[in-house]
Nucleic acid binder design. Structure first.
Length: 488
RNA sequence: GCCGCGUUCGUCUAGCCUGGUCUAGGACGCCGGCCUUUCACGCCGGUAACACGGGUUCGAAUCCCGUACGCGGUACCA
């Protein structure tokens, strides 16, 4: 690729399921690179496997990208100068180029049945330069026979004719020079018997036709890249610049499999993060840091700041383990940056999903109280249930530490005062408590702690006075009486 | 098995290309302190790593080779 070629990159997922977290990261890095270089970011749907096609998957992918705010310049829904952007709608291009390869002697027809292939693999291992001579294809069959088979409508595939004993080299932005010996490369199927191309053919044809300048994809593609390079060469095309991203691994090492992730509580699909209430900006921020480093000590980046700081040569080459704690830490900062109104609005659905009913004003009050002590929005409800319902138990360690013989009497005395209060707000509640403490000659803590325990069931949380006010007069008095009964 | 890629604190990483300034820096986590009559936030401090073995060199985390380990690929899946 010439240095002055405009940057065009693509995210090319296959619609075989919901968008995976690793896929989102690939999309993000492509996006960052494109925006950084004022280039184009293209969404291309690689739906060439009819057996694995999942209806609705493309919509899920588009919605996921839209939720996190990764906008693309061209794609199946909005079109663009290189339309269409679904490979199933571009089959003529693949066929045409497969034929070009055949004419150039760089690919061939193969008629082997599945059984024949299986038998060959058991005996020889691979379909390559060393075995293709024993198979039924346009290299071994007389021309007339090939012609006859084709005309008779016999099922066939087109395979890449990998040259003998050559070294294929290419540069990878992230890894430097990479080389493979052609003896290691199979005669890859390019066109399947159903007429659809395989990934390998489709991706190079489209990347070329769509003027893609940089191919930024997962490391799982590294070992098929030499096949692609061979095809670019055979077609007389200049290959794009390659950048193979390190894979995201499970916190225990190994691949981030669905099962492991579930066991460790790690969401795998983008929709799972959405449902778990993560901030999309935080997810992107976290993902950017998973494999890339700005080289400075900054960790928190808005998307446009990431664009400015991004560079492919600061992407690491080794696999990275997913760290949920770090994600939660990043998310926490984004939650804190929300206004109280925004937080309340975001929290509402999660609060309701827990079956709690709460008015707007009160929800805002609660949010104000908990905002800097939660990491993820749903915790407004799940980590602070006492705002919505009476506690059904008292934290053992808290009782041990904070509840003593005089607690019940003090609490009762406090409730009597609270009964008389008309304006049950933070200040009043505090004044009443401090006055009572003075009167009784005890420290405020002697009432504060039992009050918190009684009202929230816990020994920690927001400031007690704000807490009491938010819970409300009737509930506070009810809960205090109850605590005295239960704890003595 | 074979091929490819990788290997700095538990984790994400800076440093490596352009050897000395690295008694290896930051962040998450964890631990401790301050603040707060709670908890958290915040602030301060601590914990902890150059996979191993050979070379090259006056000098290696940095360059070279080997081993081990990890990951990926090895499909008419992407």
């Amino acid at each position: 690729m010439a240095a002055d070629t405009p940057v065009r990159v693509r995210f090319a997922p296959s619609p075989t399921g919901r968008l995976h977290i690793g896929g989102l990261r690939t999309a993000l890095y492509n996006y960052l690179f494109a925006r950084k270089h004022e280039g184009d970011f293209v969404l291309r749907i690689e739906d060439t496997d009819q057996a694995r096609y999942v209806p609705g998957a493309e919509e899920d992918i588009r919605e996921a990208l839209s939720w996190v705010g990764l906008d693309y310049d061209e794609g199946p829904a909005q079109g663009g100068n290189y339309a269409p952007y679904r490979q199933s709608e571009r089959t003529a291009h693949y066929r045409e180029n497969a034929e070009k390869l055949i004419d150039a002697g760089r690919a061939y027809y193969a008629f082997d049945t599945e059984e024949e292939l299986q038998e060959m693999r058991e005996k020889h291992g691979a379909y390559d330069i060393s075995t293709r001579g024993q198979m039924r294809n346009s290299l071994t069959l007389p021309d007339a026979e090939v012609e006859r088979l084709l005309e008779a409508g016999t099922e066939y595939v087109v395979r890449l004719k990998v040259p003998r004993e050559e070294t294929v080299r290419f540069d990878d932005v992230i890894r430097g020079g990479v080389s493979f010996d052609t003896s290691e490369i199979d005669d890859q199927v390019l066109l399947k018997s159903d007429g659809m191309p395989t990934y390998h053919l489709a991706n190079i044809v489209d990347d070329h036709l769509m003027d893609i300048s940089h191919v930024i994809r997962g490391e799982e593609w590294l070992s098929s890249t030499p096949k692609h390079v061979l095809m670019y060469d055979a077609l007389g095309w200049t290959p794009p610049t390659f950048a193979h991203l390190p894979l995201i691994l499970s916190p225990e090492g190994g691949k981030l499999s669905k099962r492991d992730a579930n066991r460790l509580g790690i969401p795998v699909y983008v929709t799972d993060y959405r449902e778990a209430g993560y901030e999309p900006e935080a997810l992107l921020n976290f993902l950017a840091l998973l494999g890339w480093s700005p080289g400075t000590e900054e960790e928190l980046f808005a998307l446009d700041e990431m664009v400015k700081a991004f560079s492919l040569d600061r992407v690491g080459a080794s696999g990275v383990q997913f760290d949920l704690d770090k994600l939660r830490w990043v998310n926490e900062h984004y939650v804190r940056d929300l206004s109280v109104d925004e937080l309340a609005e975001k929290a509402r659905p999660f609060v309701e999903a827990e079956g709690y009913k709460v008015g707007d004003d009160r929800l805002r009050t609660i949010c104000e109280l908990v905002q800097d002590r939660i990491q993820v929005v749903p915790e407004v409800a799940t980590d602070n249930r006492y705002f919505y319902e009476d506690p059904d138990a008292y934290e053992e360690a808290g009782v041990e530490k904070r509840w003593n013989e005089e607690s019940a009497d003090l609490l009762l005395a406090y409730t009597e005062r609270l009964e008389e209060v008309d304006n049950f707000d933070t200040d009043t509640v505090e004044t009443e408590l401090r006055d009572l403490a003075d009167e009784k000659g005890v420290g405020a803590g002697a009432i504060i702690h039992p009050s918190r325990l009684a009202v929230s069931g816990r020994s920690y949380g927001p400031g007690v006075f704000g807490l009491l006010a938010a819970v409300g007069k009737d509930a506070c008095i009810r809960r205090m009486h109850r605590a005295v009964e239960v704890l003595g």
